[in-house]
Amino acid sequence: MTTAADEPAVSQFDPKGLIRESYRIAGIDASQCRSIFLDWALSMPMEVDMQAALSALLDHYGSAQDTHPMTAVLREGLVSDQRPKRRGGWRSRPRS
């Protein structure tokens, strides 16, 4: 079980409160959770350890709400820990 003492550690990984608020939305579905997760992931600084962040968020929120769609999305994120990368653009085009 998590305590109020865990809140500062979790808030460093969720500074906008996106994950916290997703757990408070009644009737949220998996596609909405994935959209929120993508916004969260893209807003995280590059130096953040995503595995540690996802684990902390799962421990804090997911342990008490095992069937919540965001818990499933966070677990999927742990399995496929890949940061979105920009592809394309002028740099990837062949030069003539």
Rank of each mutant, 00 (worst) to 15 (best):
G62F: 10
V10H: 06
W90V: 13
L38V: 12
E47S: 12
P69Y: 04
T67K: 15
G89C: 11
D6Y: 02
S43K: 13
T67Y: 07
I36P: 06
D39Y: 02
E47R: 09
S35T: 15
D49T: 03
R93G: 06
A4Y: 09
L74M: 07
T2E: 08
L18Q: 09
M46I: 11
P94W: 10
Q51P: 00
A30I: 15
A53G: 06
G77T: 01
D6T: 03
R87N: 04
A56F: 00
S31I: 05
R95T: 13
D59H: 13
R91H: 01
G89R: 08
T3E: 00
R87Q: 13
T3V: 00
W40S: 07
H60C: 07
W40L: 05
S55H: 07
Q12R: 12
R95W: 03
T67P: 00
Q51S: 14
H68A: 08
G88C: 04
K16G: 02
Q12H: 02
R86I: 15
A5K: 14
D66Y: 02
H60M: 05
I36A: 10
P84E: 02
G88P: 08
D59Q: 12
L38A: 15
M70W: 05
P69G: 08
A9H: 06
A4P: 00
Q51C: 05
